[in-house]
């Protein structure tokens, strides 16, 4: 399968890292810690799944952090101040964020603009809009929030698989199926290979672009709702810089930043690696939390260097036998 070797390397890094951490702090190897790790990174896993589609298609989405921030503020205000039933609020924000992504995709395609610029504008727009709604943190006290927060599946060993962790796992699995098994997924890879060629081969490039950014923003909206469950509050400054953590997770997961290759599973492993680093630092207790960023940075460098090496290898004139029989 496409992108398997980088995914394997990501998996090896994760397993080796986990083993090293477990050697130093045996308690890490417990379902309790793993459950928390999944819960803490649920929103990241969801948004990174969407980002994987965007990056494989040769694009980038810088707006996701802001969309998460906006979502938390919108949901909090809708439920607490405007008295909207939570489910209605969720539906509204998901429609809004999907529409936002579709609009960005349409602008990218119709005006033939670089996704970097368009989603950068989207990032400022969404962040600015969330400040417009409220500049202070709005706590959410609706009963559904405590219900969801309390819900968890008991895992052997005392760990809790929380509702938001389950949502994340479902989305990761769904995303993987969508990317690897459907025509939509094949077209995502095609776009990443070459937009012009994909278009010549009959792929509706415009529609695909709109759908891909719509998917990314929709998942960012879901991540925002999950984040509001996680913090039980809406705050316009939440999830600042998350777009960069997301891109890091996708790249560490073996997806080529230039598009055309990658996998959702790899991205999930990338998210887990970032979570593992965080967990280690929490266990250590003496390290500053900024070491997470430093470790992520080093890993990112290593993976980009690795990808360049693999790309260079692939460019070598490897000539498999033509196998022609006539």
């Amino acid at each position: 399968m496409k992108g398997l070797p980088p995914v394997l390397i990501t998996a090896i890094v994760l397993v080796a890292g986990f083993a090293l951490c477990a050697m130093q702090f045996p308690n890490i190897a417990s379902t309790r810690v793993v459950g928390n790790l999944l819960t803490d990174n649920a929103f990241l896993g969801i948004v990174a799944t969407g980002m994987t589609f965007v990056i494989i298609s040769g694009g980038i989405d810088l707006s996701v952090g802001s969309v998460i921030g906006f979502t938390t503020v919108f949901v909090a205000l809708a439920i607490e101040r405007w008295g909207v039933p939570p489910l209605v609020a969720f539906t509204a924000i998901l429609l809004l964020s999907a529409g936002f992504g579709a609009a960005m995709g349409a602008v990218i395609h119709v005006f033939d603009l670089p996704p970097f610029i368009v989603t950068l504008a989207g990032m400022f727009l969404a962040r600015g809009a969330s400040f417009l709604l409220s500049t202070e943190s709005v706590p959410i006290t609706a009963p559904v929030y405590s219900t969801v927060s309390d819900f968890a599946l008991r895992m052997p060993g005392g760990g809790r698989l929380t509702a938001i962790a389950i949502i994340m796992l479902v989305i990761v699995i769904g995303g993987a199926l969508l990317l690897h098994l459907t025509r939509f997924g094949a077209n995502v890879y095609a776009l990443g290979g070459s937009r012009a060629t994909a278009s010549l081969m009959g792929v509706a490039v415009g529609k695909m672009t709109v759908k891909i950014y719509m998917l990314s923003s929709l998942l960012a909206g879901i991540a925002g709702i999950v984040f509001s469950f996680y913090t039980s509050a809406g705050y316009s400054l939440s999830a600042v810089g998350v777009e960069l953590d997301t891109i890091a997770a996708v790249v560490i997961g073996g997806t080529l930043l230039t598009g055309g290759q990658g996998s959702v599973i790899g991205t999930f492993l990338g998210v887990l690696i970032q979570g593992l680093i965080q967990t280690y630092i929490n266990f250590d207790g003496t390290l500053s939390s900024w070491w997470t960023k430093i470790a992520t940075g080093i890993l990112l460098f290593a993976f980009i260097a690795l990808q360049q090496g693999l790309v260079a290898l692939a460019r070598r004139p490897v000539r498999k036998s033509a196998g022609a029989t006539s």
Binding site: K2, R183, A186, N187, Y189, A190, G192, G193, S194, T197, A198, L200, M201, G202, V203, G260, Q261
Partner: peptide, 17 residues
């Protein structure tokens, strides 16, 4: 004008798999 990153089969049947 094909996509080198896709499999041969996907190239042959892209958008009509």
């Amino acid at each position: 004008n094909l996509l080198p990153n896709l499999s041969v089969a996907q190239n042959l049947f892209l958008d009509r798999q």
